[in-house]
Write a protein that binds this DNA or RNA. Sequence first.
DNA 1: ATTAAATGTGTAATCGGTTACATATGAGGT
DNA 2: ACCTCATATGTAACCGATTACACATTTAAT
Lengths: 329, 329
Amino acid sequence: MATIKDVAKQAGVSVATVSRVLNNNGYVHENTRKLVIEAIGQLSYKPNEVARSLFKKKSRLIGLLLPDIRNPFFPELARGIEDEIQEQGYQLIIGNIDEKYPKEIDYIQTFKQNNVTGIITATNLTGRSHYDNLSSPVVFLDRTFNDHPSVFADGIEGGRIAASELVKRGSKRITILKGPAQLQTAQDRFNGAIAELRAENVDFSVIETSSFSFSDAEMWAKELFGKYPDTDGILASNDVVAAAVMHEALRLGKAIPEDLQLIGFDDIPLSRLLFPPLSTIRQPAYDMGKEAAKLLIRLINKETHFEKNIQMPVMFIERQTTRKVEKNG
Amino acid sequence: MATIKDVAKQAGVSVATVSRVLNNNGYVHENTRKLVIEAIGQLSYKPNEVARSLFKKKSRLIGLLLPDIRNPFFPELARGIEDEIQEQGYQLIIGNIDEKYPKEIDYIQTFKQNNVTGIITATNLTGRSHYDNLSSPVVFLDRTFNDHPSVFADGIEGGRIAASELVKRGSKRITILKGPAQLQTAQDRFNGAIAELRAENVDFSVIETSSFSFSDAEMWAKELFGKYPDTDGILASNDVVAAAVMHEALRLGKAIPEDLQLIGFDDIPLSRLLFPPLSTIRQPAYDMGKEAAKLLIRLINKETHFEKNIQMPVMFIERQTTRKVEKNG
DNA sequence: ATTAAATGTGTAATCGGTTACATATGAGGT
DNA sequence: ACCTCATATGTAACCGATTACACATTTAAT
């Protein structure tokens, strides 16, 4: 790999001049600039980002922390972030936390040690946090944290809408799958839903779950139908869990949506491919990622006067695990 | 952030000694070592990885290139890699190529510029490649490339098995969804399948597809049933596409597996949650990731005498989109 | 014509580590 | 007592960039 010295020699100038051309600052004579650019081309020189980063204490890397890369919701967030930051010449480092707090600490440390320019975190273990005395800006995605910059969807409203749609469509004995206690987003959905059900005076039961994973989801589904075999409306904690519930319901021979209505949460790509296609509360994951990236870049550029807490809309996506509501209902 | 100089001052020694303690090399008196370790603790000093990397021309970062982070197969690979390399103190940078060649070039460049210690690539655009004159070792995952180190599953055998299982279970008019032409893995599956079908003298049709994405999968499914409405056995190019096909088949009122059998490819976590659960050819994604990581670490450590091309077994996972085979068949 | 400001370029310090080399001391061998 | 070698530690060069500062040359202004 050619270095800046090689380029300087080739162009017959000093390294300072090459650097000036590279960074487009300071004075450089037009002829000299051409010389340098030509030398760069001939040697196909690319600056060493590590050396740059050492001096500047800033890299072109942005760190992203995800709770679980296997949950399709998160790759979708990542895609949004990626598309946005690459336009600005940044690169993404993804750290997968696997819902484990020590991994989160490790990754934050790694990000620091590698001079990342900014961090976006979608992890959400309640309680302790290690984001306080970082030199690089942090955006909280799919969560909030004190009054730090954040992009999130309204989980409470989402839970409320889901419950309301289920009731509106005639479910009487509703079961809520309550997501992991340590995840704030899950609690929000749950709280929104029960608030609505209480207001509507509708009977409901709760199944507590402790993860969102594919492998465990089947377990909650079996538990649900074991305890509440005659439930006629289910609010799942997310779409993955909803898929498992639907699977179990169909296995038990229940008719969906006639005997049993089901609403998921997230609207992951797979949801429309289930059969019947899953009605769900959509979180605009890709756009949430984009917004978080935009917000982070504003913070990096030290811009001012912009909204630091962005709430994204959730919406009910009506597919076929819910019945049609009567027009005059 | 404390630097090595601060530690040296605090411990009353030179930076060289601190560095020796840090790296566990050279001679350090036991008492001195304790002094240094204490100073490190007091200042909660963490070495700057960027400075390290600049001198050593090696970082603790390993680069991973994925074709499409939204396809659940790839996060699974990533998880396997992650678990393995983190034990060795490395960190993962994931680059998502989005099936676009220029992005691949960009990421390789970024990896180089950031001194990654090794690269694992699961991209698979046929033809040109830019992996030739890299200083860091490269492992090809879910693909091969000349005789470079690689970890892959036997796509041809997978295609063969899938076809064989379908025939064995009585499908007569088989349709194959042929995956994207530019992906070697897809071609292998296809070739394996048609070889088997020809050998068995079974009639088949082909639908050509040009992506594995959720959004396009529905399109291929509709095209399939439009052109070949009486097909009674489908080999899907992967599980995502299989999900879409199943969705469409059920929508059309076909009975699975009685009227129509279906076999996917990959065995992504969602496959067992479909209803009926999807029969598929399993690739051991997590383990493939682990193996690739092990292989890479061996290359990094310049070990010798180990297998450089690792073929992983594929196997038929019998679920409920295929009929039971008669015991005396 | 004189001087201040703008332009153009190079030298060297710096970022935070690692390590080659120099130097010093003590132990063991003859 | 003398030499060798292992042990212990410090000084300074180095990795590849950026930039403060110095210096030289134009250009513009009075």
